[in-house]
Design a protein around this nucleic acid. Structure first.
Lengths: 190, 190
DNA sequence: CCTACCGATCGGTAGG
DNA sequence: CCTACCGATCGGTAGG
C-alpha cells in the first residue's frame, strides 16, 4: 500500500477521531476498541492506532474533539451577547438546545466522560476534570459579571440542571425535560 | 472440592455481589470482569459465574444491591417524617449526606449506571431506567402531597442537583459542593 | 466450587 | 497504511 501524503493522513486521522467520538458517546471512552473502529472504517488496527500511538492517546483526541464541539454549539452561540446576564441566558438556551438536538448520538459526551472517569486516574480523567473546571469557571465569571450574589452557586446549579436534562433525555426520551430545564435555569438566572 | 451448603452458597453469592458493586461503582458495570472478581475473591472464574449464569445477570444483581443500599441510605432515613414537605426535606438531607459520605467508593452507583447505560439496550438499561423512574415518581408524589405547584418539576430539579453534586465530589473532591447542593435543594423546596 | 479448556478479542508491535 | 503476529484476557462451558 502506498504511503499517503500528510494532508491525506490528516484527513484519515480526523475521520478516525470523528468515529471515535460517536462510538464513545454511546458506549464510553473505555468501550472504544481499536478493532471495532478499524472494522467500521475499513482499515487495519495498525492503521488506526498508528495515528495515535496508544488507545489512551486516541481517547484524549476524542475528548478534545468533543470539547471543541461543545464549545462551538454552546459557547460560540452565546459569545456575541453582552457579558453577564444576557450571555448567561444565551448560554442556557444554547445548552438546552445542544442537548435537545442530540449533537452526539449518545447525549452529552462530557457528562458521560465525567461519570465514566471520575473513579479512575490518569491523563484522560485529568483532562475531563480540567475541561469541566474550565467550563464552570466560564459560567461563574459571567455570573460575577452579572453581579449575582454567589457566582459559583450559579455555575453549580446550571451544570446540575444540564446533567439532569441529559439523563432524562437519554434514559427516558422525556420530551418535557427540556422545558423543565429551561424553567429551572431561568429561575437560577432570575 | 466439597459442595457447600445452600446457606454457605448464599453467603458466597452475597460476597460476590458486594465486591461487584464496589468495583462497578468505580469502573462501571461493563468494566466489571469475572476474572478480576475471581482473583480478588480467591475463587475460580467458574465459581463466580456459576452463581449467576452470565455476566449480564451479575450486572443486574449488582444493580439491585446498589438500589437497595440507596433506598436504605436515603428513603429509609426519611420515611418516618410526615409525608409532603417534611419528608422531602429529610430526603434532601439524607441524599446529600449519602453522597458526601461516599457510601459507594466511586460515588452514586445509580448515576454512574445511568450514564453508562443510557446509550445501550437490554435488561440492564431497562432496569436502570425503571429504578430512576421509580425514584423520581416517589419524589413527585411527595411534592404533590406537599401541595407544590409542579411536582414533576421538583423531582426533576432535586435529581439534577444530586447529579451535579456527585460530579463535583467525584471529579474534583469539591468540599463546598454539599453546601451548594443543600442551598439549591432548599430553594427548590421553599 | 474446582481444573482445564474453548474461540474471540483485546492493545500493541515488527517489518515492510 | 498493510499483513502477520505477540501474550493477555475476555465470557463462558464441560465434566467432575
Amino acid at each position: 500500500m502506498p504511503r499517503r501524503s500528510a494532508a491525506e493522513a490528516e484527513k484519515t486521522r480526523e475521520s478516525i477521531v470523528a468515529r471515535a467520538v460517536d462510538v464513545a458517546s454511546l458506549e464510553g471512552l473505555e468501550g472504544l476498541t481499536i478493532g471495532r473502529l478499524a472494522g467500521e472504517l475499513d482499515m487495519s488496527k495498525a492503521g488506526v492506532i498508528g495515528h495515535f500511538g496508544s488507545k489512551e492517546a486516541l481517547q484524549v483526541a476524542a475528548l478534545e474533539q468533543a470539547a471543541d464541539v461543545f464549545r462551538r454549539e454552546v459557547w460560540d452561540r452565546a459569545a456575541a451577547q453582552k457579558p453577564g446576564l444576557p450571555r448567561l441566558r444565551a448560554i442556557a438556551g444554547a445548552w438546552v438546545s445542544y442537548l435537545e438536538r442530540d449533537v452526539f448520538p449518545g447525549g452529552c459526551f462530557l457528562t458521560a466522560a465525567s461519570c465514566e472517569w471520575d473513579g479512575r486516574s490518569g491523563p484522560v480523567r485529568e483532562r475531563v476534570a480540567g475541561t469541566m473546571d474550565l467550563w464552570l469557571g466560564v459560567l461563574a465569571r459571567e455570573a460575577r459579571e452579572a453581579g449575582m450574589d454567589d457566582p459559583e452557586q450559579v455555575a453549580f446549579e446550571l451544570n446540575a440542571i444540564a446533567m439532569g436534562l441529559n439523563q432524562r433525555l437519554q434514559l427516558h426520551g422525556d420530551r418535557e425535560a427540556p422545558g423543565r430545564a429551561r424553567t429551572a435555569m431561568a429561575r437560577v438566572l432570575r
